[in-house]
């Protein structure tokens, strides 16, 4: 594929005896939005977490196969480096409760011990918050605790936190599943805006969301990649019967 940023080679993830991801080979395009879809338990979140090497926190999790970021095998890199180059937004908004809004946006730098001048910091914070359309809402109380924001605002803050680090890929794990419809719409608009400038991988249950914002759609079923193509093709003319059943709402 032209401009591939991420590539997996026979990726397998298991928890104890339970093989959850069964040998995935796929390529993710640079500056593209890729949606991961499929019924619960199909392994899509597991793949996402494997890309950020978060499975290392779970003792019983085992990741086999290779994942390449550009041409580097991420399992041979320092986990910290991988995670800094690959941002992640989680299902539930998880701003740092002990930090202010400002500190949350800049936390990727402070947590990594990167020292910045106040000017630089201000610039990064403003830039990131503008990108997630939160700047106007919070610019007058940047010193407030991040937990004082609403759920939707918190999630946009988490996105800003990821964006501020200028990652090469941003992983979004059902970023709207814990939000109300209005906040969901806002985040969707936002992702639509970011399209073209960022490589996004979004796990979602919401078909309209996938159809609306993604360039490519991957359909997973029981740990296998059944279909992976242009979003339009997947939604209008799926090759696989299971995909068709899923997008027409017959199961899932």
């Amino acid at each position: 594929m032209e401009g591939t940023i991420l590539r997996t080679e026979n990726l397998r993830v298991s928890f104890g005896d339970n093989l959850v991801v069964k040998g995935i080979n796929m390529e993710i395009g640079e500056k593209k939005v890729t949606a991961f879809m499929g019924p619960s338990g199909c392994g899509k979140t597991t793949i996402l977490r494997a890309i950020n090497r978060l499975h290392e926190l779970t003792p019983e999790a085992k990741v086999e196969g290779k994942i390449f970021l550009h041409s580097e095998n991420i399992n041979e890199m320092e986990a910290m480096t991988v995670r800094r180059r690959v941002g992640m937004v989680f299902q539930r908004p998880n701003p740092f409760p002990t930090m202010s809004i400002y500190e949350n946006v800049i936390s990727g730098f402070t947590l990594n011990g990167i020292k910045l001048k106040t000017d630089e910091k201000n610039h990064i914070v403003e830039d990131a918050l503008k990108k997630v359309a939160l700047w106007d809402e919070v610019k007058d109380h940047l010193k407030k605790r991040a937990t004082s924001l609403s759920g939707g605002q918190q999630q946009r803050l988490c996105l800003a936190r990821a964006v501020a680090m200028k990652p090469e890929v941003i992983l979004l794990d059902e970023p709207t599943s814990a939000l109300d419809p209005l906040s969901t719409a806002k985040i969707e608009d936002l992702l639509y805006e970011l399209k073209g400038n960022y490589t996004l991988i979004i796990v979602t249950h919401n078909m309209q969301q996938a159809a609306r914002i993604s360039d490519m759609t991957a359909f997973f079923y029981l740990g296998e990649l059944l279909e992976y193509d242009d979003t339009k093709k997947v939604f209008t003319n799926p090759k696989n019967e299971k995909t068709q059943n899923y997008i027409t709402g017959r199961f899932g």
Binding site: L57, M80, N94
Partner: peptide, 22 residues
């Protein structure tokens, strides 16, 4: 919540800094 620790690690922070600062 574990999500807090994950948020920090996902930003590339080391386990040490995650513990100390988060």
């Amino acid at each position: 919540p574990t999500t807090l620790k994950e948020a920090s690690l996902a930003l590339g922070a080391s386990y040490f800094r995650t513990t100390m600062k988060v």
